[in-house]
C-alpha cells in the first residue's frame, strides 16, 4: 500500500498540519569525531506506517534510530516526532536544549526494541513490563499488572509471568521486551534488528508478534535484514548506505525492482 507523503524537506509548518507525519527528519546529520555517520537524512513517516530500513553494516541504521529517541544527539538538521522538535524547545527564534526531565518526557511516547533485548535481569517478566508504567507514568501497580498480564497473553507468554529473563529463550525474551515497550502505550515503536541475535528457529515467533502489531495500526520503524518481513509487513522500505538514504519507496517495488545499483547488490547479497 502507498501512503501519501509530503515532499521530503517540507517547510516547518507542514509537520503541524493535520495528517502530518509522525516522524519527520530533515537533513539529519551525526558524526562521531571526524567520522560522518549520518550525512543528511530526509524522511517522513506517517502515523500507522511500517517503515523498514535495510542496508549494509555500518551504514548508520542504528544511529538513526537512536537519534530519534535521543540515545544519540544529532549534530545538524532537525527531527520532529508528533510535531514536537526532538531535543529542543523553540522560544521565539531560539532553540533551547532540553534538560534531562524534558528529554525523558519526550522518550515516553517512543518505544524501542533492542537487538540484545535488554530486559532487566533482576526483574520477572511481569515486573519488567510494569516498571515503566508504574515508575514513569505513575499508574497504580494493580492496574499495571493486569495490563501486563494481558500483554503477555498477546505475545503468547501467559505462562511466563513470573519467569526471570535468564529462564526464557531468546525469542521469549524479545517478546517480553516488545510487551514492555507496548505497556508505555507508545505512539511509535523503533526496532533495531530485533531478530538478529536469535537462533533461526526463534525468528518467526518474534516476527509474528511484530506483524500482529503492525496490523493494529502501530507506527513502526524497523531496522532488519528479514527481507520477507519487509516485503509482507512493511509499507515502505528505505535502503541506507554510508549515512544516506539511497532509495526509498513501496516495499514491493524496492525489494523486487530496485532502481539503484547499490540496492540491487545489497538485496542480492542478503538473499544468498
Amino acid at each position: 500500500m502507498e501512503t501519501s507523503l509530503p515532499p521530503v524537506g517540507a517547510v516547518d509548518a507542514d509537520h503541524l498540519a493535520p495528517g502530518a507525519p509522525l516522524v519527520l527528519a530533515r537533513n539529519v546529520q551525526k558524526h562521531f569525531g571526524a567520522v560522518k555517520v549520518l550525512k543528511g537524512i530526509d524522511l517522513a513517516v506517517q502515523k500507522g506506517e511500517v517503515l523498514c530500513i535495510i542496508g549494509p553494516s555500518g551504514s548508520g541504521k542504528s544511529t538513526f534510530l537512536r537519534c530519534i529517541n535521543q540515545l544519540e544527539r544529532i549534530d545538524g538538521g532537525a527531527l520532529f516526532v508528533s510535531g514536537e522538535r526532538v531535543g529542543f524547545r523553540q522560544v521565539g527564534n531560539q532553540l533551547h536544549e532540553l534538560d534531562d526531565k524534558a528529554i525523558a518526557r519526550q522518550r515516553r511516547s517512543i518505544g524501542m526494541v533492542f537487538q540484545r533485548f535488554n530486559l532487566f535481569p533482576h526483574l520477572t517478566a511481569t515486573q519488567n513490563i510494569i516498571e515503566g508504567p508504574v515508575q514513569v507514568l505513575k499508574q497504580p501497580a494493580a492496574q499495571a499488572r493486569e495490563r501486563a498480564h494481558a500483554l503477555l497473553e498477546r505475545v503468547g507468554l501467559a505462562d511466563k509471568r513470573d519467569a526471570y529473563p535468564s529462564q526464557l529463550s531468546g525469542g521469549q525474551q524479545q517478546r517480553v521486551a516488545i510487551a514492555r515497550s507496548l505497556a508505555m502505550q507508545p505512539e511509535l515503536l523503533l526496532f533495531d534488528e530485533p531478530t538478529s541475535a536469535l537462533d533461526p528457529e526463534l525468528v518467526a515467533e518474534v516476527l509474528l508478534v511484530m506483524r500482529d502489531l503492525a496490523l493494529t495500526g502501530m507506527t513502526m520503524i524497523v531496522v532488519t535484514h528479514e527481507l520477507g518481513f519487509a516485503r509482507d509487513v512493511g509499507h515502505r522500505v528505505a535502503f541506507m548506505d554510508q549515512g544516506q538514504i539511497v532509495e526509498l519507496g513501496p516495499s514491493q517495488a524496492i525489494l523486487t525492482e530496485p532502481k539503484e545499483a547499490r540496492t540491487r547488490a545489497f538485496i542480492k547479497a542478503v538473499r544468498h
Partner: peptide, 16 residues
C-alpha cells in the same frame, strides 16, 4: 550499557 538505554527508553530520569 544496554540496561541504561532500555531504562532511558522507558522515559526514566537519571536518578530513577
Amino acid at each position: 550499557q544496554g540496561q541504561y538505554e532500555a531504562a532511558q527508553t522507558l522515559g526514566m530520569t537519571r536518578l530513577q
